[in-house]
Design a protein around this nucleic acid. Structure first.
Lengths: 367, 367
DNA sequence: CTGAAAGCGCTTACAG
DNA sequence: CTGAAAGCGCTTACAG
């Protein structure tokens, strides 16, 4: 058989090690995999030789015989631009990747157009044995990926999933907790009319946020409207104008992403609205940009890296048929900055709080 | 041999197809791979059966016999936070991924701490035959990855590399062109004192930008300082203050990233500096955020997705031993927004230009 | 044009 | 504890 010519040094195999150690390939395999079947001295000798010759398993060979690829797949159905401007994804991938690579598992990444294309990718990966499992992000309402992985028998977990979905394990993404904290913060400042510029309603987490938002408002005796968008800055600007010019303008607006919050801030300022004097603004996801604009934006910070790591850990357990690891992700945390303050002419209900920045305090009003 | 139990439907192999077609496995392989050695009717029959049973090649088996993994690797040496706030990476990955997946090549992604860790990842991927080639990003001055891939014989290309590096093909990232365009824009507006808040000097592209920046200034009879940073907003704020409070304050500042530009804008505004009335600000990389802050930021937009796609195409050609594809990436483009205007008391040297936004035109000054 | 067979580099029951 | 061997699912010269 003719192999394509390979430049560079030849890569050693277990046969080479077996020969040098004077044992069979089987023994080498047992030794290298830490399995019983070789004496301690032999094992040590084999490991030393493997180390010396710089042996690494040929993953294709291992995958073929062990029916394991040693890789997990992540297909993302978001256009490049969204991906680029949502720090969420980069952090999530970092978390996933760190956890996987600490277990020597590789991450296969594919960026596709929509959920349908994602199902195609998942199907092919599984058919080709490219992956041992998959991570599902951005769960949709009636998501086709859930029945698919169940049909295929593909081990999968839902990252940041809002709630139980068939037999596929999910891990909360802090949406409920985060929305509650933001509303609570605003209510404490004295706001009773709080609107929200939301993301796309096709996402299950958007719906969850909407439910929790409504509940939190009702529980606090507050009220507000929700406008859904496509996450674009143009839509955020439009929604902000619409809300501020409406018959019952809010004293605070919550945005579902940092980009929309910044866009909304600019829109409000251009309309001559003082932030936070006349309008408080809060962003759901925190990011560096929230601390850089003026006024800096109050935001809900989530441990997104943690979500990724948790999901990856869980997926590996699922693949290995081990018990699920405990949920260990830090809860969302409200970062109060300069963009939120008591509403005009109102006193904060439970103790006024100074916000962190000078710019903010000058805008604070007495009740 | 006992395989781990596989839930879900059994995945068909070429043996299944051969049996159903009444031919040998070899013929099936030839037919499926579009090679000579089977008659047209047989080929069609085989393809129909493969389609019908939903056959996909077991990539591990194919990799083992063909000595090809069908995957390329990308190791990124940047902390999660940087990754998250640099739209550059997400766009680059999108471009790479789109090109690779159109050729049925998978992308393996690993995020590591530093370049040394990257060399470890590359070495292991290659030793394990996990990848057929690798993409190198963020070339450093004296980058250890270049001699490594040469030593290993690992096919590799440098993405956005500033210039020729040994035997490893590189693809320009528009740094020189982009810097030139920004300086040219500012010079045309009448600026003669232009500073730059640069990124880390360890990157080869930072050095290239610095060289081109100096040359462009000199060529235009202008002058300016360069301050290097770690890309953090804190460093950008500090550098901005330092430059504005110096003995020869600039009338324009160019930032090496959008986050730094926004931070610099806020810092200047908090010092009471009017942008663009007293100070023009330009960002090297464009992003949605540049259009959302006020004043909106003039920026140099690059076809980052194109860089990724180009590099991926080239890498595949290298692996396949085919001729290099032609360079087809759109050149950087200056997007003039509201943050740049003629300097105080100066007339634009070659014809005044109205900037695109109302906010900007109100800030324009007559000479 | 087609088939039988060897081989890729591992893992893993099965005998000794 | 150890060795010889089969097998994972492909690809590819080699005979017919």
């Amino acid at each position: 058989m003719v192999r394509r010519q390979e430049p560079g040094p030849r890569r050693p195999t277990i046969a080479d090690i077996a020969q040098r150690a004077g044992v069979s390939k089987g023994s080498v395999s047992y030794a290298l995999n830490g399995r019983p079947g070789v004496s301690e001295p032999t094992r040590r000798r084999i490991l030393a030789i493997a180390e010396e010759v710089g042996w690494h398993p040929n993953r294709a060979a291992r995958a073929l015989s062990a029916a394991r690829s040693g890789a997990c797949g992540l297909a993302l159905a978001r256009p490049a631009r969204t991906l680029a401007y949502e720090p969420f994804f980069a952090e999530l991938i970092s978390g996933i990747e760190a956890e996987l690579s600490s277990r020597q598992v590789a991450l296969m990444l594919q960026i596709v157009e929509d959920v349908e294309a994602e199902t195609v990718a998942l199907r092919r990966w599984w058919a080709e044995r490219r992956v041992d499992g998959a991570l599902l992000v951005d769960l949709r309402v009636e998501d086709p990926r859930v029945p698919l992985v169940e049909e295929l028998g593909l081990p999968a977990v839902i990252v940041g999933g809002p709630g139980p979905t068939g037999s596929v394990p999910f891990f909360p993404g802090g949406d409920a907790n985060g929305v509650s904290q933001i509303v609570q913060h605003l209510v404490r400042l004295g706001h009773r009319r709080i609107d929200r510029v939301a993301g796309s309603p096709e996402f299950a987490h958007t719906q969850l946020r909407t439910e929790v938002f409504a509940g939190a408002l009702a529980g606090a005796g507050a009220s507000g409207n929700v406008v859904t968008t496509d996450y674009s800055s143009a839509a955020a600007v439009e929604a902000t104008r619409q809300l501020l010019l409406g018959s019952a303008p809010p004293t605070a607006i919550v945005y579902d992403s940092d980009l929309m919050a910044v866009a909304g801030l600019s829109a409000a300022q251009e309309m001559g609205t003082d932030v936070p004097g006349e309008l408080s603004i809060a962003s759901f996801d925190d990011s560096l940009i929230c601390g850089v604009v003026r006024p800096s934006l109050t935001a809900c910070a989530r441990d997104v890296v943690g979500y990724g790591a948790q999901a990856a850990r869980a997926l590996i357990s699922l693949i290995e048929d081990e018990p699920m690891p405990p949920y260990a992700v830090e809860p969302p945390r409200l970062v109060a900055r300069a963009s939120t303050a008591p509403p005009p002419g109102a006193s904060a209900s439970r103790g006024r709080r100074r916000t962190q920045h000078v710019v903010a305090s000058t805008a604070e009003q007495s009740g």
